[in-house]
Amino acid sequence: MAKDARVQVETAPRSDGAGKLTAHARYRPILLQVFQGVVGLGIFFLLWYLLVDCFGVWRFKQLPHLVSSVREFLSRNPTYGVSLFTAEYYRHLWASIQRVAIAFVTAVTCGTSLGIALAWNRWFRAAVFPLLELARPIPILAWIPLVITLSPSRPASVIILTFLAAFFITTLNTMLGVRSIDEVYFRAARSLGFSDFAILRHIVIPGALPHIFVGLQIAMAACWFSLVASEIVAGTAGLGYKVWEAYYYVQFDTMTIMMATLGLCGYLSSMLVRRIGKALMSWREEMLGGLS
């Protein structure tokens, strides 16, 4: 009986007379969610520890150990020279972040401009779009040899490759975004006397923004992907480069640290893009749900 009552409380949040949820009932579902999330992560780490560190099941025993990786990361004097407290760590981190930042910003600038131009002018699109469509199916990494041949230096080729990845995605999404704007807005703007520039500024850009930002999130992930790959192949420093080097010299703990750092960077950068998008598109947040 008591159990039923408890279940009832959890599923139907209690409200006071005025109809507002009591603080207790409001935070309950979120607390539960967080708790379950923590448990999930805990199970993951526990499995890692058991399968690798503790029992060394099958081939798991060859994987980097959880405990030693964490210890290495947090120690002031790490065995292989990379931890939270060493300059080496930050050197690689900065190298990678710098490259992604330059490549991403350049790609977004070029990509959105090109995408808008492609959507705006029929002839330009007819001339340029086929070229893009020919280049697009080629996987980014397949460009590596070409880019290395044509580029002035190795770090430059890493940035160029990272740029390429984001560029194609951004251009396409921007173009689709502009073309997805309902024609009725253009007609209304023309009647109201908008100049071409005014249409660009007040219709095209805000209208395409949702599409563009979806593209930007994908482009960010693509940036990290191509950064890591090109650093492995052609880099001299950076997170990707270090992952491979650590593997090569059998410094598995360092490898794990670098992988985890990559994950964190990727997550944070995507979140940053999402936040900026939300801020720029505040009008979307205000929409009443379901009312026509």
Binding site: G37, G40, F225, L227, L262, C265
Partner: peptide, 21 residues
């Protein structure tokens, strides 16, 4: 709720970085 945080932590790691593992 349990699996999503784990997935979201692993997902940003580019698959290329998983090659050594």
């Amino acid at each position: 709720n349990s699996a999503f945080p784990v997935a979201e932590s692993l997902r940003p790691i580019p698959p290329v970085a998983w090659i050594p593992i």
